[in-house]
Design a protein around this nucleic acid. Structure first.
Length: 799
DNA sequence: ATGGGGCTGCTTTTT
DNA sequence: GCAGCCCCAT
């Protein structure tokens, strides 16, 4: 029998919300709304630098600590006027932190236990960030449970956790292997060889990509064949897909796409498993939702179940992974997919100056397919974006190095304040060169990754075979590494036997001496099998670290490298590094195992080589810069043909490039230096690229052209038959035929002109250089590629 | 079976 | 311009 009146209840809830609002006073209103919107589908459109991770983490903590207290109207039976007074006093005197810790738990309604919370991210880095922030938010508050019980991880690690438990239901026995891109490529390549499909007519890359995209869309080999119908190329790929899938299964292996796809299959086909997780995961959040593909969308909705407590966070304007299957539709249609979804926009930016945001806003506004957001900040306008044209990529690199040094000496900046972000890795070489020459310390991301090095891959392959002898891709990788006289022909023969007998390759090897086809290599094979068996026995009782050491010893791999002398020194060091990684894994994991280590190797890329504390300029692609921020950003290669790339000059491709430009610009906190070159040597070809269209898409008042000398002498060297690209600011881009003085024998052409050649057909001039009295053209022909031709010999016509 | 030399081809990348 | 890969010669 409650004595609480309606008025009391209203005042109770008012003061409760005021307490929450004070607790969240360090958040802006939108952020607070996102954190306290607990039930039902929620889409948070988080602009660059808008505190997205903060919101994600605090919302999870909010639900675990307070549940739906903020929105609920529940008033406890024993609440009375005295409690109101107490709360009012707390509101006036306590700090936000004290309120959060001492008062708000009183209001707890329907809170959730940590293991009922699922938080999915894309990268291990993001997962690590979220985990560590959750850990510190929940530290020492055991009443709420431990942050480590929260299911926070990447799509792949979450799925692996599910598959390790239920994998048998979809045909995988325990200890299954994960194939990475390289393994996948080898396996597909093998399939193509066995199907006698020439890699020249159908590149492995294409096949791999097609199969991967199919898996993204949850299309299996049979369905794929059906969809392809009698399309020749498609039919061939369908054949490969079928064989590839069968071989993966017989190797007890999954590729990256399978990890998602098979989990979806598991949850679709096994209602009990699905219900198990639906009951468990009362709340689901997905980060970087703009990068999800269809399979991940399905997975999310299967895991979420009927309660629909699904929060997705992302920025449609930062969707830059279409090429690897991400579909921006997921984020664009979330609010129609979940019709009662709450949509919250985080537009206040805490990172950049207003000038940078103005430029970014104007740029991205050119895209059609977006939810629409406008970033703003409370801070200052800041300096204009600098733009500079340099003669070539060497000068461009020098300019960057000089500017770094200049700003360090004149403004006391540190090397680590600078980032050079480029569109393509190929752009990095000259910049590296200039930094090296100028003595600028730098750190480059995106070279060969640690686990992609040959010696590491080989060693990991040994471990994989020890853990799972059915893993034929890895088996083949190491069967003759180091050389032990088991050549391709012997392996091919053994594979054939395996195919005929329908057993594994390793099984055939164990009985090598009973096959005539293998008689020549039987002794060598026997030695290899004994090696693996010895190591398997050893593995049963040894640690992973010891196993690696023993493997390198007994296989002769280490010996081989030592024999290589100085040249192989790095490789030996890398293997030591692998052993210390294994050691680290074992000391940091409760139930360490060989399978666990291999899974880490497959799914966890190396612990970020990007050391934020080192005082060095950082160089990386724009793609890998997503999510990072730097005081000063250099954007070299602001040229059409580079950025946007020449194969993305219109439509969806161009929109994706523009999003990439948006990502690039929004990385900068204080200043941006854009550069472009007059001529650029790339892939051994000199190109003359016009300025990037993205420059013109930014408001001109945001940009200041710092090109040093008004005219370079070099302009004399190049003759064009048209005025240097119509600079008409006023009026339409009408081409005027100025001073047409074509010196005989031919009309001269300039870069960008489309010409026709009697034998080579249609082509585009990419460079025109005066050589003596003649002109040398470099032309990309549609049919025959690039040719260099002299004007007087080539009978070129304007096309 | 192995190693060396020519030829192609080549955005972006995490899992 | 360079690297990785295939083919060929040993």
């Amino acid at each position: 029998m409650s004595l609480q009146t309606g008025d009391f209840r209203r005042r109770y809830n008012e003061i409760k919300r005021a307490l929450f609002d004070k607790f969240y006073s360090d958040l802006n209103e939108r952020q607070r709304e996102a954190v306290t919107t607990v039930n039902g589908p929620l889409l948070v459109l988080a602009g660059a630098g808008s505190g997205k991770t903060t919101v994600l983490v605090r919302r999870i903590v909010h639900i675990i600590k307070y549940g739906d207290a903020y929105n609920s109207d529940y008033v406890p039976e024993d609440a009375d006027e005295a409690s109101l007074l107490r709360y009012k006093y707390a509101l006036e005197t306590m700090t936000p932190d004290e309120i959060g810790e001492l008062v708000l738990p009183d209001f707890r309604v329907d809170a959730c236990r940590p293991w009922e919370m699922l938080a999915i991210t894309f990268t291990n880095k993001a997962a690590g960030e979220i985990k560590s922030r959750l850990a510190s938010a929940l530290e020492g508050q055991d009443a709420f449970g431990s942050a480590s019980e929260i299911w926070a991880g990447t799509f792949h690690s979450i799925c692996m956790r599910i598959l390790r438990r239920w994998g048998e239901l979809v045909g995988y026995s325990s200890g299954f292997t994960v194939y990475d891109t390289d393994d996948t490529k080898r396996l597909i390549s093998d399939c193509m060889r066995d199907l006698k499909i020439d890699e020249k007519t159908l590149p492995v890359k294409t096949v791999m990509n097609t199969i991967s995209r199919a898996k993204d869309r949850l299309i299996d080999a049979e369905q794929f064949a059906a969809v392809m119908g009698d399309d020749y190329r498609g039919g061939k790929i369908a054949e490969i897909y079928k064989m590839y899938a069968a071989r993966l299964l017989s190797s007890n292996a999954l590729d990256f796409d399978d990890i998602i796809m098979q989990t979806v299959r598991l949850l679709t086909e096994h209602e009990d498993v699905r219900e198990h997780y639906n009951r468990q995961f009362r709340y689901v959040s997905v980060d970087e939702y703009q990068d999800t593909n269809h399979a991940q969308f399905r997975l999310t909705s299967l895991l979420t179940g009927k309660h629909n407590n699904l929060m997705v966070v992302g920025d449609d304007d930062q969707s830059i992974y279409k090429f690897r299957g991400a579909t921006i539709e997921n984020i664009l249609t979330f609010d129609s997919e979940y019709s009662d979804a709450v949509v919250i926009r985080l537009e206040q930016n805490y990172r950049s100056t207003q000038t940078i945001l103005d430029a970014a806003n104007a740029l991205i506004a050119k895209n059609e397919r977006r939810h629409g957001k406008t970033l703003w900040c409370a801070g200052e306008k800041g300096s204009k974006i600098s733009l500079c044209e340099l003669p070539n990529q060497i000068e461009e690199a020098k300019y960057i190095a000089d500017t770094v040094e200049k700003l360090i000496s004149s403004e006391g900046m540190k090397y680590r304040d600078f980032a050079v972000l480029y569109r393509m890795n190929a752009q990095s070489a000259p910049i590296e060169g200039a930094f090296a020459k100028a003595g600028v310390p730098y750190r480059m991301l995106g070279g060969l990754r640690f686990y992609d090095r040959k010696e590491i891959r080989d060693t990991v392959a040994y471990l994989s075979v020890i853990a799972n002898p059915n893993d034929s891709v890895r088996l083949k990788r190491i069967i003759n590494e180091p050389k032990r006289k088991i050549g391709n022909s012997a392996v091919a023969a053994a594979e054939e036997i395996a195919a005929v007998e329908g057993c594994g390759l390793y099984d055939v090897l164990t009985r090598a001496d009973s096959y005539i086809a293998l008689s020549r290599a039987a002794a060598a094979i026997g030695g290899f099998v004994r090696l693996i068996e010895t190591l398997r026995e050893f593995a049963a009782s040894a640690s992973v670290t010891e196993l690696i050491d023993r493997t390198l010893e007994l296989s002769g791999y280490r010996e081989m490298l030592i024999a290589g002398g100085e040249a192989e020194r790095d490789r030996l060091e890398n293997l030591d590094q692998l052993m210390s990684n294994a050691y680290e894994y074992e000391s940091g994991t409760e139930e360490s195992s060989l399978t666990g280590f291999l899974e880490d190797v497959a799914l966890v890329s190396e612990v970020d080589r990007y050391d934020e504390t080192a005082d060095a300029v950082v160089m990386m692609t724009i793609h890998s810069a997503k999510g990072l921020e730097f005081p000063i950003v250099f954007l070299p290669g602001m040229e059409d043909g580079i950025f946007p790339g020449m194969q993305s000059t219109s439509g969806e491709e161009l929109e994706e490039e523009r999003r990439l430009a948006y990502v690039a610009v929004t990385r900068a906190k204080k200043r941006i230096y854009m550069t472009r070159t007059h001529s650029r040597l790339l892939y051994g070809m000199t190109r003359f690229n016009p300025p990037s269209r993205f420059i013109a898409e930014m408001p001109s008042e945001c940009i200041s052209d710092e090109t040093p000398v008004p005219e370079y002498a070099r302009r004399q060297q190049f003759v064009k038959n048209e005025p240097p690209k119509p600079k008409y600011k006023d009026g339409a881009g009408v081409r005027v035929n100025v001073s047409k003085t074509p010196p005989p024998p031919t009309e001269y052409f300039g870069p960008g002109d489309i010409v026709h050649h009697r034998t080579f057909g249609r082509g585009e001039i990419i460079s025109a250089v005066m050589m003596g009295a003649d002109m040398m053209y470099e032309i990309i022909f549609d049919e025959v590629g690039t040719k260099k031709l002299m004007a007087s010999y080539a009978k070129l016509e304007k096309a």
